[in-house]
Design a protein around this nucleic acid. Structure first.
Lengths: 297, 297
DNA sequence: TCCATCCTCTGACTCTAGTCAGAGGGTTGG
DNA sequence: CCAACCCTCTGACTAGAGTCAGAGGATGGA
């Protein structure tokens, strides 16, 4: 990363915060404090729990409560005790609230339009595609990798998606019962680990690493959510697992896969994995790979 | 402009305000109110007039004054009556102020870096170039065209740059005395008009239009600042003048130019101007153009 | 020299954002 | 059924951002 790049990013930040950032808040909130507007957005047409709102916006509970009261006195929302748990109150938009939200939505469109209006067709197309590129890469840059328990909610969500996808992609379908799946213990320290990739707090990918005492380290259940593909996330997970295995003193990393998972297979090759004969009898695999790594632990 | 483009811009706005916008303010200002930090930036190493600060930041004079007092009491700036005009006070950074500014600068670098760190080399390069594209085009989109008096400060600044450039580019040099320059009255309603293009308040281009009673409308002194080239600004000025002339019921638009101004010449052709025999005896011109337009006034 | 004008400053506000410490109901496990 | 815990709400604050009106010194043209 050189200083010309840093300068470029800084220039971008300046332009964008001036042009988009400032307008964004001021313009959209126009006749309503930003806090209230943000809350309206977050409540959305389908309503939301107070608790959830607080978490999503990262605000103090007292503050949210106060904001809700002012929205309520403007007749935009109703707050009622929740059905399941009457402590957790549920917020819904009234008709007026829905109208207000639609207005915010329209303004957001106008704001977007105002950036495009002064440009000609060619410039517009270039701007939109450059924005998409920035968006993708910034999103990629915000993805964090965290160690989590393979039985936590996020892990279960990822694995469910993983299984569903295997089911759809593998020619024979996929039945977890008939696969050599590690049990949770094998993907939990000290016998292994499980990484989740999160974007804005939402799980968008995962990968497990088995670290058996008497066998090489093995990658399991690597998955990237369809909407997060093309961000280099697969490679990042792979690199991270490699580092972790090396950190545990391992010198060999293995994995099994299926040829219909083309993107995965070429990723493995691109990352330096070499194809080897079957080292297990996983019924759903037809290709096996390994890579020598340098122990650092 | 279609709705897919609007959506793209909105998605971009969301990502960027979350990732860049919020961080920008909170992070940079850390242990100092944002207002003060912005003021420090704007004062800069070389100092600044209070009046200028107010204009640039668009703040109330009382507010700026108060901010300056607090910076002063922190020992970061000194405020003294100006030399030329003792009403206009001048602000300079103290040694401590310079240090503080350097800290802000470093943080800004860190922030920029934090966006790049999680990416690999290829992604970084792509992000930086997409950012540059967005920056250019957003800058282009923020350029405003205003009618101003041809003897106002901004107009004079532009014309000075225009003359300097002619001097440098024309093979014979350029002496305003020997050219058929319109006097200011010819570029001022009702006999004409003068447009200035401004980016963030700074004049970056200009163009004059003569509207003589007994002759076709004529474009004069069109200039775009070197740092604003490639933004389609020339074309925008030309289009605007065409509209204005049409709005005055004119059906013919003329201009003279010199072949060494290659970009200008090809712009005229691309905009539908056709070369014609000399219609004046401007000594510094060697090409003459005209375009039929449709009167709308 | 005088007066209109310009520039900066102060005092007195308003509004929004956000924090902190309880109060007071609701829920759940023992 | 009770105690511990959860969730939301209210009251009482603080701090930043910004506005408005007018005071008062400085300047420049008549």
């Amino acid at each position: 990363m050189d200083s010309a790049q840093i300068d470029g990013v800084r220039r971008f930040n300046r332009t964008v915060t001036e042009r988009v950032g400032v307008l964004h808040d001021r313009y959209l909130g126009r006749d309503r404090p930003i806090g209230q507007a943000r809350l309206l957005w977050e409540i959305g047409d389908s309503g939301q729990d107070v608790r959830r709102l607080r978490e999503r916006l990262g605000l103090d509970s007292g503050y949210v409560s106060r904001l809700l009261r002012s929205l309520e006195s403007d007749g935009l929302v109703t707050v009622e005790p929740g059905r399941r748990d009457r402590r957790i109150r549920a917020v819904t938009l009234t008709e007026a609230g829905r109208t207000e939200l639609a207005t915010l939505d329209r303004r957001s469109d106008e704001l977007a339009g105002s950036l495009l209006v002064p440009l000609n067709d060619g410039q517009r197309a270039r701007l939109v595609s450059a924005m998409a590129e920035v968006d993708r890469l910034l999103t990629a840059a915000t993805v964090t990798l965290d160690d989590i328990d393979p039985e936590s909610t996020d892990a279960r969500d990822c694995l469910r998606s993983y299984f569903t996808e295997m089911e759809a992609v593998l020619p024979t379908g996929f039945d977890p019962e008939r696969s050599l799946l590690p049990d949770a213990g094998e993907l939990r320290p000290p016998r292994g680990l499980f990484l989740v990739a999160r974007s804005h707090g939402e799980a968008v990918g995962c990968a497990g690493l088995k670290l058996p005492r008497d066998a090489p380290a093995e990658i399991k259940r690597m998955w990237v959510s369809p909407q997060a593909r093309g961000l280099g996330l697969g490679r990042r997970l792979l690199t991270e697992l490699e580092l972790r295995a090396a950190g545990q003193g391992r010198t060999l990393l293995r994995l099994d896969t299926h040829h219909t998972l083309e993107a995965a297979v070429s990723l493995y090759r691109a990352c330096g994995f070499r194809e080897v004969p079957a080292f297990n009898d996983e019924g759903y695999a037809d290709h096996w790979f390994e890579k020598r790594i340098t122990a650092t632990g």
